[in-house]
Design a protein around this nucleic acid. Structure first.
Length: 464
RNA sequence: GGCGGCAUAGCCAAGUGGUAAGGCAGAGGACUGCAAAUCCUUUACCCCCAGUUCAAAUCUGGGUGCCGCCUCCA
């Protein structure tokens, strides 16, 4: 199993710190608003990797945090005239609504920064005692130049970084590169007691503290969005390794950007879509399929056209699953001939091989398409019930890792629909094509698609 | 200015030395009352130039173009 490590900029053999146990920390959303589809890409991507690791027998402990105290939350809460906690509670709920809808399995732990304050304070204290932090008038800063490896993740030279750094008004840092671990409370802001007086945590320290608390000093995989590499993850390394003296994470993983019209999605450009927007227009599985159809480190472009393309592709896979299901229910075993057998093992092996190659979901999906074609062919020639069952199970098994092919296409015929189909059959026998076609249209509007096959009339529910 | 990524058919997209997966769209065919679905066939001088090699989309150098990070951001 190979994983690309941002730290070394190479693909590395994946060896967990301990046996087959994998500890993963993913930076979660700042809960001041609905999350957007760029966030969704991160959550879907790493959650899918977790599924695959579990599938391969790893015991995964997965942590994804909520940032529920920061400038953006404070600003938004003030605008809405509610407390920061009320705002955060609201958007954590909304997070779960959207994430659940997208089929994103819940993490083992979803810690909140505000519930980790005592751990954060302990960590800052430790950094202070070690000389990695200093206090100025109630603020505590990290002494960046004291940490030897600073810049190793983003591969930036510390002096080059210093050239671009700025000190904001009101900050009293020793060095422009230093960053806040603890911020002195301002009037009307949420705050907690600390050795440096009332205040709140800086942004980066919470992730160090939560990873430490739930996963320990060294974790296997730390993951997140691409724009977290600098400064967020760089700072996390400085904090965690400064405090423990041990490597923070063995593998650092980052997804590519999700772009709109080939440009980074951002609020200032107004090219912004929340997951909820997109969920109102597309089936969640289509969104997952779309995101997983390119390599996770490549940028992907979001547009209706491309999502439509993805939907068509997913429909093709579903046609196979539904045709096979139908066949097994209605046709298999009814003929005297034993039927074909499909060699399934090679597909499974190729799929696993693709996923073990730095999670090449695009390649894995192509295996599903090839399996799909072979099943389709076998279906017209007559596949054995046993082999058909196994093929169906494999499609669902491999699709399930990606979070697709989970729907049941068949529904029980309601009487009204049954009646319509009978009427249409009668019309067809009388070669009354216009009546037959209008009934088919009528059913289409009800979400029922009819197919006249050599074996008789097939119907299916429109599922995407 | 510093650092990095990408450039494969109309579109999307795999492929890190041995003469190009897969999907969408298109064309032709089979099936069909018509559709739909499915199957078969078909569509690539792998951005340009030079080099290394028996052999390069894949390695090296140069060029062009696009994108990103260095500042809150997934």
């Amino acid at each position: 199993m190979q994983i690309y490590n941002t730290l070394t900029r190479r693909r590395e053999e994946f060896v967990p710190l301990k046996d087959k146990e994998v500890k993963i920390y993913v930076c979660g959303p700042t809960v001041y608003d609905f999350f957007h589809i760029g966030n969704a890409r991160v959550f879907i991507t790493f959650e899918t990797f977790r599924r695959f690791l579990k599938y391969r027998g790893y015991k995964v402990t997965y942590v994804q945090n909520f940032t529920d105290i920061d400038d953006k939350l404070i600003k938004r809460a003030n605008e809405e005239g509610i407390s920061v906690k009320e705002l955060a509670d609201k958007y954590i709920q909304e997070y779960f609504k959207d994430a659940d809808a997208l089929g994103i399995e819940r993490a083992d732990y979803h810690p909140r920064a505000t519930e980790t304050i005592s751990d954060i304070i302990e960590l800052v204290k430790k950094l202070y005692d070690e000389g990695y932090a200093y206090e100025v008038d109630g603020d505590v800063y990290y002494r960046t130049r004291k940490f030897e490896g600073y810049g190793k993740l983003s591969h930036q030279d510390i002096d080059e970084l210093a050239a671009g750094a700025r000190i904001e008004v009101g900050e009293k840092k020793e060095d422009p590169l230093d960053f806040a671990l603890w911020k002195k409370a301002k009037q009307g802001e949420p705050s907690w007691e600390s050795p440096w007086g009332k205040g709140r945590p800086g942004w980066h320290i919470e992730c160090s503290a939560m990873a430490l608390k739930f996963l320990g000093e060294t974790i296997d995989i730390h993951a997140g969005g691409p724009d977290l590499i600098f400064p967020h993850h760089e700072n996390e390394i400085a904090q965690s390794e400064g405090a423990t003296g041990k490597p923070f994470a063995k593998y650092w993983m980052h997804v590519g950007y999700l772009n709109i019209n080939n440009e980074k999605m951002s609020k200032s450009l107004g090219n912004f879509f929340t997951a909820r927007d997109v969920l109102s227009k597309y089936d969640p599985e289509v969104i997952r399929f779309f995101m997983l159809s390119a390599h996770y480190r490549s940028p992907i472009n979001y547009s209706m056209e491309l999502i439509d393309q993805a939907q068509k592709g997913l429909e093709r896979l579903y046609n196979t699953v539904n045709d096979l299901t139908y066949y097994l229910k209605n046709t298999a075993g009814q003929t005297a001939s034993p039927g074909l057998t499909i060699e399934l093992e090679p597909y499974k092996e190729r799929y696993i091989k693709a996923m073990e190659d730095d999670f090449n979901t695009a390649d894995a999906i192509s295996v599903l398409f090839e399996l799909s074609r072979e099943i389709n062919t076998a279906l017209r020639e007559g596949v054995s019930a046993d082999s058909g069952q196994k093929a169906l199970a494999l499609m669902k098994e491999l699709g399930g890792i990606l979070g697709i092919l989970k729907k049941e296409g068949e529904v029980n015929l309601e009487e009204e629909i049954e009646l319509l189909i009978k009427k249409r059959e009668e019309a067809r026998r009388n070669k009354d094509w216009s009546t037959a076609d209008s009934i088919r249209e009528q059913l289409k509007k009800m979400g029922i698609i009819l197919e006249d096959t050599p074996g008789g009339v097939r119907w299916k529910k429109e599922i995407l």
